[in-house]
Write a protein that binds this DNA or RNA. Structure first.
Lengths: 227, 227
DNA sequence: TTTTAACAGATTGTCGACAATTCTGGTCTT
DNA sequence: AAGACCAGAATTGTCGACAATCTGTTAAAA
């Protein structure tokens, strides 16, 4: 799927495997958001010792998927509207910067690949028409590629390693595919164009608007639901 | 020092204490940047079991102070010029956003406190004149307060919990007090003014310029040293 | 001489048991 | 009836030992 990602160095140890399993279960909601985590219970469930399980929990904490309190225990992070909007603001700042850097740092080959991915999305979209354009994962995700294109390892670690799965969790649990799919596609095209033109300033601005638009869209949607 | 900071919940457990100790030793360079970490050796040094030490290592990894590879071990993160400049770009994006949010979210009381801190820095500076304005820690740090003022818990966690000590490490090891002290003070004053005026857009722009200026200053300085 | 194989030593990952702390419920006092 | 207090149970933190993996060196083969 994706390499050069700290939280994903091909699961070699058993703790890695437990971590991945639990990550999916949390992201997809099989382990409920906000629920308490019992170490003995889960250790039995996955047939490993508590030490190994705790190692996995430590990594989940690094991904912001669970929270721990000393001498009390762990809870799965709660999916609140407030939290969702907060994440979008962080993304706006970070991915905006990534996009600016990508414009100057990406190689021609990388830009070519990105163009290909976007074209591929275009045809896929015609087939599924408006369904889950955003649901790609890893190297297939437009945003993911732009971030990697920044060539800023620190940025990549934070966005692809520490926040990526939390973002996916929100997407899954709030059920976000949305009518913004075709609109997002156009915005992605504009961003790619700015990158290809090596216009970092514009690229950042477009990416920020793109993410801010998603955020506002969600705000509106949730307001409507509240009625 | 500071509360509501995930990596600093008043060290209750022994792993917490080892974590804090090692954190300081790494930040201040007593444990050398880039050196390998031997679990048995350190466990003996601090008189704890390896499990406890590993718990501490996990937290150090969360702060980006060490890096681990499966079946190989941990190394203290290396302080490279590239890494330093990368961090500054991340800060520019994140603290810029924090500043924008602070302008709309901070209470009048918080703004008043911040003004007080800044005034205090002003008098201190006249005494020490140009020495280590930037060296404050925790609640006394201007940047720290602005970040907290964003009231965005996610942002606060990332900047104050996960990156703060890495930034301090660079400051310590590259020996940064610098002739930018008085200049920085003026820029801080301008930022505070924008926040007090509730002008988020301006506040963000000023903060970004402030951090970018620091970055460029460092770039220039290092170029000069290279001659 | 160079490359590969195997071995010894050390290091990391995993396990099960014990200690310390928190949570639960029941009793007693006001 | 409400609240404080005190066991007992359960959970988390810590420990030492064993298993799996890596590293560096030596020896054998091409």
């Amino acid at each position: 799927m994706n390499d050069n990602n700290p939280a994903r160095q091909a699961p070699v140890t058993t703790a890695d495997k437990i971590f991945e399993t639990m990550q999916h279960e949390i992201v997809e909601g099989h382990i409920l958001s906000g629920s308490k985590i019992s170490e003995p219970e889960l250790a039995k469930k996955y047939q490993v010792s508590r030490s190994t399980l705790r190692e996995a929990l430590n990594r989940l904490e690094k991904c912001h998927l669970i929270e721990r309190k000393a001498n009390v225990g762990s809870r799965v992070v709660e999916c609140t509207v407030k939290g969702l909007l907060e994440i979008y603001l962080v993304r706006e700042a970070l991915e905006g910067m990534a996009c600016r850097l990508a414009a100057t740092e990406m190689s021609e080959a990388e830009i070519h690949d990105l163009k290909h991915i976007l074209d591929d999305h275009g045809t896929k979209e015609k087939l599924k028409d408006g369904v889950a354009y955003y649901q790609e994962e890893g190297d297939l995700d437009f945003h993911y590629c732009v971030i990697k294109g920044s060539h800023n390892q620190n940025l990549i670690n934070i966005l692809c390693g520490e926040l990526y799965h939390l973002i996916r969790m929100y997407r899954c649990q709030f059920g976000m595919n949305s009518p913004r799919a075709t609109r997002a596609y156009d915005e992605h095209k504009a961003i790619l164009h700015a990158i290809a033109e090596r216009d970092g300033e514009l690229a950042e601005m477009l990416m920020r608007r793109h993410i801010a638009a998603s955020r506002k869209n969600i705000e509106k949607k949730l307001e409507k639901e509240r009625e």
